[in-house]
Nucleic acid binder design. Structure first.
Length: 597
RNA sequence: GGUCCUGUAGCUCAACUGGAUAGAGCAACAGCCUUCUAAGCUGUAGGUUCCAGGUUCGAAUCCUGGCUGGAUCACCA
C-alpha cells in the first residue's frame, strides 16, 4: 500500500465531493509535516480556496473530516491556517511496512526494456587518474545504478582520449630520456610511468620556452617554436600517417596506461560495458558536415572552412571544419553521437558525465544536433559537475598539486585502518577480512564525500580534514548497517522469527518507528527524484536521514528487552528492512556496507 | 565585454521544486556506556538565506538590477 498516493486520491475525492472540483490525485502534492506540528503529512489548502470559496481553516476542516470518516489511513487531523496536518493510524503504518518488508526489491522496478547510455571517465592516456576523475567516475557509475533501479537497461561507456598531442608529448620524452624503461623494469604502474614522461616533457618544454623568451621571442612564438614541441608535433604527424614505428610505440605506451587504469578502476569499483577510443572516432563527423550544408544549417566561408551561426540562439559562431578540411572536436562529437544512436536505435538517453567547464560545448553540440533534426537530440544530456578544488586552489598537473586517485584511495584506507584500530573493533577478524573492511570503509568515506554534494556545485577538498568518519559520512551509515547486522545475527541465533504481515500487537508504535517507516515508504520516490535530477546526492541525503532516524530508535527502544513477542519480532523485521534499504541505497552510490565494523 | 553556473550558521552541505518559526553534520560547550557495536545518542550556542527592488495569501526558491566567486566564448582538446 502506498500511503502517499492513497491519501492524495482520497483528498482529491474530498475536494471533488465537497466542492464540486475536478481534480486528480496526480495534481496534488503532500509534504512532510514540520516537526513543530503534530502529524505526518501536510496538505496545503491555500491553492484550493478559490474552489472551496471558504476560509483556509474551514476548507481544512471539511477535507479533514471527510478523510477521518472515509479513510482508514487518517486517524486524526489538525488545521493551522491553510495547513491540514494528517495523522496516519498505526494500522496503516504497519500495513505499509509489511508490504515493504516482504518485497526484497522494494524501491526497485522491474526491467522496462528501455535503454540509456551513460558515458563517464573519459581519461587522457598521458597521465594517471586524479581526484577529478574520482568525482566523475563515482557520479557516472552512481547515475547508471540509479537508472538501473528504475528498470532501464544501462550501457556504461567510456571514451578514451588515446590520441593527440598529449600522448605524443609522453612518447617524445620517453624516447629521449626513457632508456627503454618499462613498467616491468621500473616496477611502476603503467599510467604512472607514462605520466612521469609527460611531466618530463613539460619540464623540458618550459625551460626551452623560457630560454627562447629570454632571447627575445614572444611567449606565443616561443611556445610554438620550442624544439621539443616541434618534435611532439612531428610525432603527431607521423602517427596520423600511421608510420609503423611511431604507431607501435603509441600502442605500447597506451597499453601500459590501460593496465594501470584497470587497476585503478578495479580499486574504485567502477566498470564499463563499452569502450570507445578516440583514435577510432576522431575522423568521424566530417560526413555530417555535408548534410548540414545541404540542409542550409551550416555555411562555408571563402577559405573553405565550415561554420554554424548560433547567434540567434544567444550563442556564437562555431567552426565545424577547418579551412584545411580537418575536423575539430565538436565535429567529432556530432559524429560519435550519431554513430551511437545508429548502433543502438532504441537508445532513449545519452548521458555525458563531463565537468562544467564544458557546459558551453554541450549546449552547442545538442543545439546543432537539434538543428540537424535528429529526433533523439532531446535525449542527450550533459551531466555537468563542478570542479574539485584544493585549499591551495585549482589542481594543476604542471605545478604538481594534483591529488592522485591511487594515492588518495590508499590514504583513505590507511585512515580507516587507524580509526578501526584506535576503536579496537576488529576482534576476530583475520587479515584478509580486516583489509577488506579498511577498503570498504575508506572507499565508502571517499565516495560518500564526493557524492553527497549536488553535482553541479564545485567543491573543496581538504586532504587534512575533509573526510570525516563521524556525522554525515559513509562510515556513519556503514556503522548503522553493521549494528543492525549484529542484531539480526543475534535474532537468528536466538531463534526469533520474522514478523508476519497479518500480525498485530498491543500498544502504539514508537514515534521513531513511525518516522522510519515513513522514510522507508519514500525510498522509491527518492530514487525517482535522484534520476530526474541526475543527482546521487538525493540518495545520499536520504540514506543519511534514514540511518540517523534509525539510530534514534536504536538508542531509545529496546529490542531484545521487549516483552511482547510480536512486538519484538516486529522490531527485528523493522531493523531488517532498514538494513536492506541502507544496503541497496548505498549500492546506488557504489558503496559497499560491512556486516561488522 | 557576451553567455552560463554559483552565493544559506565559523566550516561542509540540506531545505521534497512557491508553504508554517530556514534544517543536518563538523568544529565549540554540557551530558549519556554494569543493558542490543559510543564510528552512536541527547542538549546548548550559532542566521539580515550576498544586496536592492518587484510578483502574491506566502519568496532562500520566480522576475529585474547590482555585487562576490567560478567556468566559457580559439582554424585547442
Amino acid at each position: 500500500m502506498n500511503i502517499d498516493f492513497s491519501l492524495r486520491k482520497q483528498i482529491a475525492l474530498a475536494l471533488n465531493e465537497s466542492f464540486g472540483a475536478d481534480i486528480t490525485a496526480d495534481s496534488l502534492s503532500l509534504q512532510p509535516t514540520r516537526k513543530e506540528f503534530t502529524g505526518t503529512y501536510t496538505f496545503v489548502t491555500f491553492p484550493f480556496l478559490k474552489i472551496s470559496k471558504m476560509k483556509p481553516e474551514e476548507t481544512g476542516e471539511i477535507i479533514g473530516d471527510y478523510l477521518k470518516s472515509n479513510s482508514e489511513i487518517v486517524e486524526d487531523y489538525n488545521v493551522v491556517k491553510g495547513f491540514l496536518n494528517l495523522h496516519v493510524s498505526d494500522m496503516a503504518w504497519i500495513k505499509a511496512f509489511s508490504s515493504i518488508v516482504s518485497n526484497d526489491k522494494n524501491g526497485f522496478r522491474p526491467s522496462n526494456g528501455r535503454r540509456i547510455m551513460v558515458e563517464y571517465s573519459s581519461p587522457n592516456t598521458n597521465k594517471p587518474l586524479h581526484l577529478g576523475h574520482l568525482r566523475n567516475n563515482f557520479l557516472g557509475y552512481s547515475v547508471s545504478k540509479i537508472y538501473e533501479a528504475l528498470g532501464y537497461d544501462i550501457i556504461k561507456a567510456q571514451i578514451i582520449n588515446d590520441r593527440g598531442i598529449h600522448i605524443c608529448k609522453s612518447m617524445v620524452a620517453w624516447e629521449k630520456y626513457g632508456n627503454g624503461e618499462t613498467p616491468e623494469t621500473s616496477g611502476m604502474k603503467g599510467d604512472k610511468l607514462v605520466g612521469k614522461y609527460y611531466v618530463a616533457f613539460e619540464k623540458q618544454y618550459r625551460q626551452e620556452v623560457n630560454a627562447l623568451v629570454d632571447s627575445g621571442l614572444k611567449m606565443v612564438e616561443a611556445e610554438k617554436k620550442a624544439p621539443i614541441m616541434l618534435e611532439a608535433v612531428e610525432m603527431l604527424r607521423k602517427w596520423e600517417a600511421k608510420e609503423a614505428e611511431t604507431y607501435a610505440l603509441w600502442e605500447t605506451m597506451n597499453n601500459w596506461v590501460y593496465k594501470g587504469f584497470e587497476i585503478t578502476y578495479n580499486h574504485m569499483g567502477v566498470t564499463f560495458d563499452k569502450l570507445y577510443y578516440e583514435s577510432d572516432t576522431y575522423l568521424r563527423g566530417k560526413k555530417v558536415v555535408q548534410t548540414g550544408l545541404d540542409k542550409g544549417v551550416f555555411y562555408k566561408k571563402e577559405d573553405g572552412s565550415v561554420w554554424i551561426d548560433l547567434s540567434a540562439d544567444g550563442l556564437d559562431e562555431k567552426l565545424l571544419l577547418r579551412s584545411d578540411g580537418t575536423a575539430v572536436y565538436i565535429t567529432q562529437d556530432i559524429g560519435t553521437a550519431i554513430e551511437r544512436f545508429t548502433e543502438y536505435p532504441d537508445l532513449e538517453k545519452l548521458v555525458y558525465t563531463v565537468g562544467n567547464e564544458q557546459d558551453y560545448h554541450f549546449k552547442v553540440l545538442f543545439l546543432i544536433l537539434k538543428k540537424l533534426e535528429y529526433s533523439w537530440a532531446d535525449g542527450c544530456h550533459h551531466l555537468s559537475y563542478g570542479m574539485v578544488d584544493l585549499p591551495t586552489g585549482k589542481m594543476k598537473s604542471r605545478e604538481g598539486t594534483v591529488v592522485d586517485a591511487d594515492d588518495l584511495m590508499d590514504e583513505m584506507e590507511q585512515t580507516a585502518l587507524q580509526h578501526t584500530q584506535d576503536l579496537g573493533k576488529i576482534e576476530g577478524f583475520d587479515e584478509a577480512q580486516a583489509a577488506n573492511l579498511y577498503r570498504m570503509v575508506g572507499l565508502g568515506a571517499l565516495k560518500y564525500f564526493l557524492l553527497k554534494v549536488d553535482p553541479r556545485k564545485g567543491m573543496l577538498f581538504n586532504p587534512e580534514e575533509s573526510i570525516q568518519f563521524q556525522g554525515n559520512t559513509g562510515p556513519f551509515i556503514q556503522y548503522t548497517f553493521a549494528r543492525i547486522s549484529a542484531l539480526l545475527r543475534r535474532a537468528k541465533e536466538t531463534g526469533i522469527g520474522l514478523f508476519m504481515s497479518d500480525e498485530t500487537f498491543q500498544g502504539r508504535l514508537h514515534e521513531h518507528e513511525r518516522e522510519v517507516i515513513y522514510l522507508l515508504t519514500q525510498f522509491e520516490s527518492r530514487i525517482n527524484e535522484a534520476a530526474g535530477e541526475y543527482s546521487p546526492a538525493v540518495i545520499a541525503q536520504y540514506i543519511f536521514e534514514l540511518a540517523k532516524e534509525y539510530n534514534k530508535f536504536y538508542q531509545e527502544v529496546s529490542i531484545f528487552g521487549e516483552q511482547d513477542e510480536a512486538k519484538k519480532r516486529f522490531r527485528i523485521s523493522f531493523s531488517y528492512a532498514v538494513a536492506r534499504t541502507i544496503k541497496s541505497g548505498m549500492g546506488l552510490l557504489g558503496i559497499e556496507v560491512p556486516e561488522r565494523m
